[in-house]
């Protein structure tokens, strides 16, 4: 059983430590992954998603399940504590997709990698005929990206990139679960759908007012909230502007819908929705 084989020397580490400690293990030979993309649009969109993630994260976890791929970031609190969850439906991107997880009950694979390495490998596929991604074992476990490029002389040219990865042991999988939406304080906020973005420095104050935004409250009907009160409480959150701008500027995905949820004085949550992928980004508040 693989679970038995993943026992390692760091048994003493408890899972509620905020740092996650990675132990590099050799990939249990049972784990397999092979995916192939043949449509250039899919390859390019996949590259854009990875590029978007690369703007806000350096090292991410890649979680593979039979139906989805997830890119997950859980930043340490000392670095700002942002987190990001990106979910991609595999059949939208891949023509062929085969995987065997760690075990029958846990049919998933969790890998950790430097996202920039993956991005650069994908970039060489911008005009590829096909793209294969496989889990392999070279000197270390790797995600092997095999790009089939057009060639003048022969049928095609193959470029292979071995991107080193680390297998995340089953023990730590809880850190990479889909985040629950926290209770959002949108209850009586601004029925009219207004949002204000404020930036303040010594010399300048800038406020931007957004109106006519769609408001939605999870599970609650907005209408039932209508009070005659004119004075509606506002929900506020202060976040690191660099991280916010990294996220906004790094967007390449062109989502169909963007939802921004604010938890008063705790965090901002962005939810980008597209056909077959979603990206969530959590920015915690900073102290005033």
């Amino acid at each position: 059983m693989n679970l038995g084989r993943t026992v390692n020397v760091s048994e003493n580490i408890s899972c509620d430590q905020q740092e996650f400690v990675l132990v590099v293990l050799s990939a249990p030979s049972k784990m397999k992954f092979r995916g192939k993309m043949v449509e250039i649009i899919c390859i390019q969109q996949f590259t854009k998603v990875v590029a978007t993630v690369a703007k806000v994260a350096k090292i991410v976890a890649l979680r593979l399940s039979p139906s989805h791929l997830f890119l997950v970031l859980n930043e340490q609190v000392v670095n700002g504590g942002t987190s990001m969850w990106c979910s991609l439906s595999q059949d939208h991107f891949f023509n062929e997709y085969n995987m065997e997880g760690v075990s029958a009950e846990n049919n998933e694979i969790y890998l950790e990698l430097t996202i920039e390495n993956l991005l650069r490998a994908l970039k060489s596929a911008h005009s590829a005929k096909s793209l294969k991604i496989k889990l392999t074992k070279k000197r270390v476990p790797c995600l092997t990206i095999e790009v089939e490029l057009p060639s003048l002389v022969s049928a095609s040219r193959i470029v292979i990139h071995d991107v080193p990865v680390a297998v995340i042991p089953r023990r730590l999988w809880d850190e990479f679960q889909e985040p629950e939406m926290p209770d959002f304080d949108t209850v009586s906020a601004s029925r009219e759908g207004e949002m204000t973005l404020t930036v303040e420095t010594d010399l300048v104050t800038v406020k931007t007012y957004f109106k006519d935004l769609d408001m939605s409250v999870e599970g609650k009907n907005v209408q039932s909230q209508s009070n005659s009160s004119d004075c509606l409480p506002w929900v506020e959150a202060r976040v690191d502007i660099r991280k916010l701008s990294q996220f906004l500027v790094g967007q390449q995905v062109n989502p169909l819908r963007v939802i921004c949820n604010i938890v008063h004085n705790r965090m901002i949550h962005f939810f980008l929705l597209h056909d077959d992928l979603s990206l969530q980004y959590f920015l915690p508040c900073i102290a005033s």
Binding site: D202, L203, V204, T205, V206, T208, Y209, F210, K211
Partner: peptide, 19 residues
């Protein structure tokens, strides 16, 4: 008083006050 600049683009209003 600060110099006030108000910019309006596509329904979004930005109010800048520069000391």
């Amino acid at each position: 008083s600060p110099l006030v600049l108000i910019l309006e683009e596509g329904g979004v209003l930005t109010d800048c006050r520069i000391k």
